[in-house]
Amino acid sequence: MLKLSWHAISGHLILILGAIFMTAPVWVAFMSSTHSAETLFREGLQAWPGGHFFENYNEVLFVEGGVMKRVTASMMLWNSLLLGIGFAIGKVVISTLAAYAIVYFRFRLATPLFWIIFMTLLLPLEVRIIPSYEVVAGMGLLDTHTGLILPLIASATGTFYFRQFYKSVPEELLEAARLDGANAWQFFIDILIPISKTMIAAILIIMFVVGWNQYLWPLIMTTNEDNYTLVIGIKQIYQVLSEGGELPQFQKAYALTILATLPPVIVVLVFQSWFVKGLVESEK
């Protein structure tokens, strides 16, 4: 009995330590965001709640700031949401269509094309960032939401996942649909998309988080503060902190950081059952 409980206690101790290790920074950032700038400047990071929660968050969210005094966190939140959602939906639309073309239309170049797409997995955005910038600039899309999202939505990973999934769909399903009078488009919309919906949900969630966390591309693309995303905003605030002669506004930076982590956390929490299902489920 005693032995067993020791076992349990030591196990739990390790788990508790791990949990503290993981969550402590988030906790400290959250707590610090509820103190005044003076407290933080004088006493450093705070581990317990202060009295400035509403004041700080209100200021960050709704009082216009930045160099031009026009940026609010709510605006950045909106921009980030647009980027995350646009990025995720765009990627899913493009990759389902691309995979559909590769798997179901047996044109001569399907296989080489697939491998070319697959090889672009090896090329990160950073490698093509200057040509991409050139193209977007040439199209006059700098500083627009379209320019922010469009160049990112081609997805080798997504195409690869959907290709593998479509290949596992029995051929007879397509044949049954053809006998039922469905054309290529109807088969895609009526049959293929519904049976891949858990897969789509999983990809949407992953891509939303990836889109939300985009840093380099929005940084290069956006010069107008109206188009800043939250991730850029955090970076800007730290920059101001290190330059300005005023009292550093650490509490705002922390508030912004907390705000920036919230949406991805919410999305994953809400959709996690779908997410897991999409990754493990195989259709019968």
Partner: peptide
Amino acid sequence: VSPAERNVAMVFQNYALYPHM
């Protein structure tokens, strides 16, 4: 003539039912 317009119906070995319907 396309399969649908032939007005034939087929029963497949693995049934090929639309799983989401």
